[in-house]
Design a protein around this nucleic acid. Structure first.
Lengths: 199, 199
DNA sequence: TTCAAACATGAAACTTGATTCATGTTTCAA
DNA sequence: TTGAAACATGAATCAAGTTTCATGTTTGAA
């Protein structure tokens, strides 16, 4: 049985609403100022509840942070899945997936930062996040090889390479500087991913 | 004029030695337990000096952390430069550089973690670190294109792609799990970097 | 309608650590 | 050799910030 979410599950409508307000407030506060710079009081203030209320739903500051990381994983996967659904060619799916990832980073800077910071706040959540991605990638690459859509190769290495590449392009061209259109970044990156550097 | 290092510069032999002991202790403490989990008392205890001594050489906990980030940049660059010096072919240099990077990550887990964490402790130091790398990469790629050693393309995107790829392979196969030999990681990654995914 | 379980409050208790400072000790150029 | 600048000490200070708790209020199933 999979646990749907961390923290105590509310029993009433009011409780559900309050927990949701806390999660949303935490996303904004952690996302904009970081885990250590933000205090519980900031979260409860933004959520419009008292400090004690926080501890009805979460055991600690770290617990709500972890929930946000899983949340980010689910959101990212469903956003990308929706963008590439129905695409037959794996290379084309990869390309649209990368574009979606960069767009997603731009539109969700808060959550993006939370995932990155989880490496230092909740390492297991961070590893979980990336391993889920890597496994999915690897599976897709394997089946594409079988279909003859891409060359055979070490797909685990390829998966982690693509993850690193996407993450840093997202950081550099999605978060730090949005001058270059997502399409241009994607096209250039894809030329590299498809053909490599060789003349 | 370039400032050689942060913090107050010691005037005597004893001072120089003490500052060095502090920096080394900080590398171990920050590197193994993280910026926020480690306290000044841990650093001074390991260095074998009193707490007050720390503030003779550094204005704050953050300042010594920043010095460690620059330090890591210099070390990494010189390690890689030494490993690829004399290699004529850019593709081969790139390959040896990647291998050196993964080896370096394995041998310097502390410093590797410090650089990663700087994204959340000293963002400007983090950006500086990666921009220096990216610029060097881009310059190398440009000159290789001119020599006809690699295809023309957007070398800024390629540079950041290669950085992301190296970083995540270093994390996954250098830090988290060392089962796979660096040579094997490098070979597989290089097949991808040279030829891409296309059949 | 009722009332036990849920939910909400926020001031105060507690921890945790960075930084300071008043007081010595050591170095080294002159 | 000497004394002013450097260096070293560590207990005390001080500022955060998380978590608790004693005391109400609200909800919703029976």
């Amino acid at each position: 049985m999979q646990i749907a979410s961390e923290g105590k599950t509310p029993k009433t409508k009011r409780g559900i609403k309050t927990k949701a307000k806390l999660l949303e407030a935490a996303e904004i506060e952690f996302g904009s100022r970081g885990f250590h710079e933000c205090m519980i009081a900031d979260i409860t203030r933004r959520a419009g509840v008292a400090m004690g209320t926080f501890y009805i739903y979460y055991e600690s500051k770290e617990e709500i942070f972890r929930e946000l990381v899983s949340h980010m994983g689910r959101l990212t996967r469903s956003y990308i899945a929706q963008k590439i659904s129905g695409i037959e060619s794996r290379l084309e799916a990869e390309k649209q997936g990368l574009k979606a990832y960069i767009e997603f980073a731009r539109e969700n800077k808060n959550l993006y930062r939370i995932v990155m910071e989880s490496q230092f706040v909740a390492l297991d959540a961070f590893k979980e996040y990336y391993h889920v991605f890597a496994n999915a990638y690897e599976t897709n690459l394997n089946s594409s090889v079988e279909k003859g859509q891409i060359r055979a190769g070490n797909n685990e290495i390829r998966a982690w390479s693509l993850i690193g590449l996407s993450t840093y392009l997202g950081l550099r061209f999605g978060i730090w500087d949005e001058q270059m259109p997502a399409q241009e970044v994607t096209d250039a990156a894809f030329d590299f991913i498809e053909n490599g550097l060789k003349p």
